[in-house]
Simulated scan of single mutants.
Amino acid sequence: MFLRLFFMLVLSAGIAACASTPSSRRGAPDFSSLSLCRGVVISNAPATDHSRRIANYDPQASIQGTVLLRAPVNACVSSGFGPRRGGAGSFHHGLDLYTGRPSAVYAGGDGVITSVDRLRGYGKTILIRHGGGVETRYAHLSSYAPGVRPGTRVRMGDVLGRTGDTGNATAVHLHYEVIVDGKRHNPLTIGH
């Protein structure tokens, strides 16, 4: 009841947050599909099918020889990449993946952690270098996993930390960026 009231207040205030909790999954993460969050208007939403699932979704991308997960957390999309109305700025440089409560965030691909820091706006953040000019950023985390520090080698699917609302965040989620040669790209469309 409290959560429902909270989300009704958030939505009535015009804050970009997802209005439903994704289904709880136990065991290995399932990245096979991704949907828009229900009950919220997403001004920069990617194309979907009639069930609000991301159209033509492929959970992995191959970018300059690097294989990455497009959404490294069990979640729903609460903000897409690109221009948006309201919220924190007019252009959104990542993908917001709402979890509702702190949930495991996984490494999007094999690489080396180059930064574990608290950054203005991003809050608790991790940056991974994957090689070939490809990096991924994980922001608004509530906590880091044990052993996560600069120089640590990670494999796709390793737990990095938990989603949160640190920095400029209005709900518990992951802000995920794919950066190629210093430029941020849409995690849902880059690569093949």
Rank of each mutant, 00 (worst) to 15 (best):
M1Y: 06
M8W: 11
M8G: 14
L9M: 13
L9G: 15
V10I: 15
L11K: 11
A13T: 07
A17S: 05
A17W: 07
S24T: 08
R25L: 14
G27M: 09
D30Y: 07
S32Q: 01
L34D: 00
L34Q: 04
S35G: 12
S35K: 05
S35T: 02
L36N: 10
L36R: 02
L36M: 08
C37N: 04
G39K: 00
V40D: 12
I42G: 06
I42P: 10
S43W: 03
N44M: 09
P46I: 01
P46L: 03
A47F: 04
A47D: 13
T48W: 01
H50Y: 11
I54Y: 06
A55Q: 04
A55I: 05
Y57W: 03
A61K: 02
Q64A: 15
Q64P: 00
Q64T: 03
G65P: 01
T66M: 13
L68Q: 03
L69Q: 06
R70D: 03
A71E: 03
V77Y: 04
V77H: 08
S78L: 02
S79L: 01
G80P: 06
G80D: 03
P83D: 11
R84M: 04
R84C: 07
A88S: 15
A88I: 06
S90K: 08
F91L: 07
L95Q: 01
L95V: 04
L97G: 12
L97W: 07
G100R: 06
R101Y: 13
P102H: 10
S103G: 15
S103R: 11
Y106F: 15
A107P: 12
V112I: 08
V112Y: 00
I113L: 09
T114K: 10
S115L: 12
V116I: 04
R118W: 10
Y122Q: 14
G123E: 05
G123N: 06
T125S: 11
I126L: 09
L127N: 04
L127P: 01
I128F: 02
R129K: 09
G132Q: 06
G132D: 07
G132Y: 05
E135G: 04
T136H: 02
R137S: 14
R137V: 14
L141F: 05
L141S: 14
L141M: 15
S142I: 05
S143C: 11
S143E: 14
Y144M: 08
A145Y: 05
A145K: 03
G147M: 04
V148Y: 00
T152E: 13
T152I: 11
R153Y: 13
R153Q: 15
R155K: 15
V159M: 14
G161F: 13
G167N: 10
T170P: 05
V172I: 11
H173M: 09
E177L: 01
E177C: 09
I179R: 11
D181L: 07
D181T: 01
K183C: 00
R184M: 14
H185E: 12
N186F: 03
L188H: 09
L188R: 06
H192C: 02
